[in-house]
Design a binder for these strands. Structure first.
Length: 424
RNA sequence: AGAGGAGUGGCAGAGUGGUCGAAUGCACUGGUCUUGAAAACCAGCGUACCGCGAGGUACCGGGGGUUCGAAUCCCUCCUCCUCUGCCA
């Protein structure tokens, strides 16, 4: 979340920046934040001096008791009653103001970076790079949801039986292709200097707040009510939360982690006629890269991560484009995001396969993730992450783009991982 | 899951109601000494909030309570250790 001190000092800028991302009532909310902050601070000042007085009197009582002057001690004790009463109610005022402030700050999204294009919706995202050309498909080319039936490699119906819609079963070469891709992505990430981690895929509430899924996306995560746990929507959550309440040392930086996890999303309300096959699932696999950087180098890291993801797509021989998301389409916690979209030839549409974001200090502030600079000052770090990559849509586009009359050709780079070069 | 024990600063570890934000040791930082290093010695060394500042407040696993006053007493939750049970 945004820092109150920052809002206080840059009020007009913050309002303008939130307006850019079409955050409703930015001015009113910010004014409310500042008003609550003001009352919180004055309550604290009053409370602090009251407590100082009470502490002082208590020490006097202690001294008198030691000397055995009970009468004098009792008379001072009488004075403390009123102070106690006052400080109790003032403490309530202060802590409720603090809670109110926090609750309000939780509803305010991050400020978009300067280079984020204006725009209200995904229609205004800027295509900043395109690579590759559309493959020429054989006549009678099929979309992936037909191909998976034809080759019997992914079964949606049996998934429906086991769980419900959006939980497919990968079978035979379908399962092996997926595993191969995961291994390929993890190997590549290791080579690029990311340390592999295997985090829990179930998280507690504090972790949900730490990276900003809560309270913003409450209804989007599967909830385990018994324990008040959530299934992760992305490995970003457990991996980034490893660094909650951590003060890193200069030599620990930069942090570069990679993790493979299944991801779970309820996708409440986002199902439509255009969503078919692997395009949108409740459970899918994803390899995620996370970086923690010094503020001054985070945008360089963002670029590096984008290049890394692009490299993966190129190695797989996929046609893709890079979008600089406009302010209105930016995720709640992000300061800037680049989406990578792969062209799915048989569907004739672009599929988002990666989203690479810089959260600046937005998550770090919630996480209390800081580092100690050379000058001894503690400073919030910048967190970044990106999909590298999300599996189902990669599978979908590989199936569609590489279909031939003799089956689906596996990209050469994957063959050592799959152990076969064709699905037929 | 049941029984017992324990959670204190980067680490180790003292502290069971009063000047304790917390002894001591190690680690770390600066200095003296030294050709240099080590050793020794001296000094410093938690976090957050409020305040222009002086300074104040809070924090001894989390939350709540008793008390004029809580690291210390009570309740509750969490975590770890030991034993028993169960289980991939």
């Amino acid at each position: 979340m945004l820092q109150v001190a920052y809002i206080r000092e840059n009020k007009d800028f913050v309002i303008k920046a939130l307006g850019k991302r079409k955050f409703a009532d930015a001015e009113q909310v910010i004014n409310q934040v500042l008003a609550i902050d003001e009352s919180r601070r004055s309550a604290q000042q009053e409370l602090d001096s009251l407590l100082a007085e009470a502490n002082h009197l208590s020490k006097q009582i202690g001294g008198l008791m030691k000397q055995g002057d009970v009468a004098a001690a009792e008379s001072i004790k009488a004075q403390t009653a009123e102070i106690k009463l006052k400080s109790k109610s003032l403490g309530d005022v202060q802590s409720s103001a603090e809670e109110e402030l926090k609750a309000l700050l939780y509803t305010i999204p991050n400020i978009p970076n300067n280079n984020v294009p204006e725009g209200a919706s995904e229609d205004h995202n800027e295509v900043v790079y395109e690579h590759g050309s559309t493959p020429s498909l054989p006549s009678g080319a099929l979309p992936h949801w037909e191909l998976i039936k034809k080759y019997d490699i992914i079964d949606f119906e049996v998934g429906v039986k086991i769980t419900g819609a959006g939980f497919p079963v990968y079978k035979g070469k379908g399962a092996r292709l997926q595993r191969a891709l995961v291994n390929f992505f993890l190997e590549e990430a290791s080579k690029a200097g990311y340390m592999e981690v295997q985090p829990p895929i179930v998280i507690n509430e504090a972790s949900g707040y730490g990276t900003g899924q809560l309270p913003d996306k409450d209804g989007q995560m599967y909830h385990i009510s018994e324990e008040n746990f959530f299934l992760i929507p992305t490995a970003e959550v457990p991996i980034t939360n490893m660094y909650r309440d951590v003060i890193l040392k200069e030599q620990d930086l930069p942090v570069k982690n990679v993790g493979f996890t299944p991801c779970f999303r309820r996708e409440a309300g986002s199902w439509g006629a255009h969503v078919r096959g692997l395009n949108r699932l409740h459970q899918f696999d994803k390899v995620e890269v996370v970086q923690i950087r010094r503020p001054e180098e985070s945008y360089q890291a963002l670029e590096e991560m984008c290049k890394y993801v692009q490299g993966l797509l190129e190695k797989l021989g996929l046609q893709y484009r890079v979008l600089n998301l406009c302010a209105g389409d930016l995720g709640f916690t992000s300061a800037q995001t680049f989406d990578m979209e792969v062209f799915s030839a048989a569907q004739g549409k672009w599929l988002e396969v990666s989203s690479v974001s810089n959260f600046e200090t937005y998550q770090a502030n919630r996480l209390k993730l800081r580092y100690q600079a050379a000058d001894k000052k503690k400073q919030l770090l910048h967190t970044l992450n990106g999909s590298a990559l999300a599996l189902p849509r990669i599978v979908a586009s590989l199936l569609e783009n590489n279909q031939t009359e003799d089956g689906i050709v596996i990209p050469e780079i994957l063959v050592p991982y799959t152990g076969f070069d064709r699905i037929n």
